[in-house]
Simulated assay, not measured.
Amino acid sequence: MTQHGRQVPDHLLIRIAQRNDPVSAVSEDDARRRSLAYPKLMWGAPVFGHAEEVAGRWRILGLSGDQPQGSRDALGSHFRQLRKETPETAGHAAERREYREAIRLLDWEVVDDLTVHGRRYRIIRAQPFIRMGPDGPEPPRPTDPDPYPPGSTRGAPYQEEGFVIDPTATTGLSDGLLRIEMVPAFYQAGLVPDDVRADSRRALATHPNVVLLPVGFTIGEYVHGSWQPRSFTTYPTPQAARDSAAFRFGDIVPHEDASLEEIRAAYTRALEEFEAPRTDEFEIRGVRCRVTRVERFVRVGPDGPEGPRPSDWDPEPPPELHCQQLREQGLLPDPD
């Protein structure tokens, strides 16, 4: 784990370099101050995505699912789009056939690693965490990019899309120290089931390094004397999180037996009445809320990023298999 160790395998490297430009200096100072003000790291539930290997490095195509199957479905959609974009000519027939076979495979089977048209694809696992201090979760830092004005964040790009998972890339001092801190980290006894903890410890050997991903943002709320996530969705900028603040389903449904028309009307009213806050601290219906900074890392090994673990929550079967199961149970009609 040294910037000078030429004999160290790539997947074990953490390269730390001092950056002398003004922006890096301010960012490092922000990170140092926040590590003191928010010293406790709290892990959240893992998130999953899909990535492709390009020139020996893995590039993230998407990262948003709370279960692996959602990311497998997203990878299937990626192949559908690639097949759609591939010309229907004799010269591209083999490529189109490979995409079709990959789509069918993902529709019917649980697959986390496959090669299609000479390129490897993988379902990947990322670990989110937030920093906590005496006053609650860490808010955005002054140096976190926040380029969009209120109400104009729809469609804002997610920084992790296209991000290359490269353990050899040079990092600043604060991020390098954080990576070193995360390398030996695993779930502690009593906080998670035994199989989850065992998988967590096993990952230290199979994927012994970590790479930090671009940060995201969500909304935390103070309820019954403690902070909790208002939503498990992570947004690309602080303002995108603020813009999302009013649209939790339970807040807008008028009553438990509301009809679809009533729900639509309530949602329309919520859109019309909501004015996105411009600050990181605000109230929604009397509940204290805070824009919260979410950091994430991916564990990496000699063969690339870590995939789903056996103990990860993964209740949904592949879509075509699920439909078949529902038909066998009489819960879905046979296709015409």
Score class of each variant (00 low, 15 high):
H224D: 12
E52T: 03
P317V: 02
Q228L: 10
Q239E: 11
I60F: 00
H322S: 15
R264G: 15
L106A: 09
V210E: 07
P302G: 03
F163D: 01
S27N: 02
A51L: 03
G91H: 10
G65H: 12
P208C: 07
P167E: 10
Q127A: 14
A31P: 08
R248D: 04
A94K: 13
V116K: 04
G162F: 01
L106F: 07
H255L: 03
P150I: 03
L13N: 11
A102S: 04
V8A: 15
Q67T: 01
G330L: 14
P305H: 07
S35N: 11
H11V: 11
I60H: 00
D73C: 01
S174V: 00
E52N: 03
V183T: 15
P140C: 08
Q329C: 13
I130Q: 05
E295P: 00
T153R: 00
S244I: 06
D303W: 05
L332H: 07
G49N: 06
I180Q: 12
Q329L: 15
T218P: 00
E28M: 05
A93S: 10
S311D: 09
P150S: 02
R278T: 07
R80H: 13
I165K: 04
P317L: 05
R269H: 09
G133E: 14
P277R: 00
V110E: 08
P193S: 13
S259V: 05
T168L: 02
D243L: 12
G162D: 02
E320R: 04
R197D: 10
L75H: 03
D194Y: 09
A205M: 05
Y222R: 14
V196H: 13
R80Q: 15
F232K: 11
R33W: 09
P140L: 07
R296A: 13
W43V: 01
Q81G: 03
D166N: 09
A25M: 12
P145V: 07
E160D: 08
D314W: 08
R96A: 14
S244L: 05
I252Q: 01
Y121W: 11
L321S: 14
G176E: 01
V215R: 11
P140V: 05
P46K: 04
D112G: 14
N209W: 00
A266Q: 06
L75Q: 06
W108K: 04
R197L: 12
E316G: 11
R230H: 05
W313K: 11
P229S: 13
P46G: 04
G91I: 09
A37I: 08
V300N: 01
P39R: 06
T171L: 03
F217K: 05
L326M: 15
E88S: 15
P149Y: 02
P308V: 12
V210D: 08
P134K: 12
P147R: 06
G76S: 13
E160K: 01
G304V: 07
R327H: 09
H92V: 04
V47N: 07
P184Y: 07
G118Y: 02
G225A: 13
R125P: 05
L260P: 00
S71H: 03
S77G: 07
G118W: 03
Q3V: 13
A265N: 12
G286N: 01
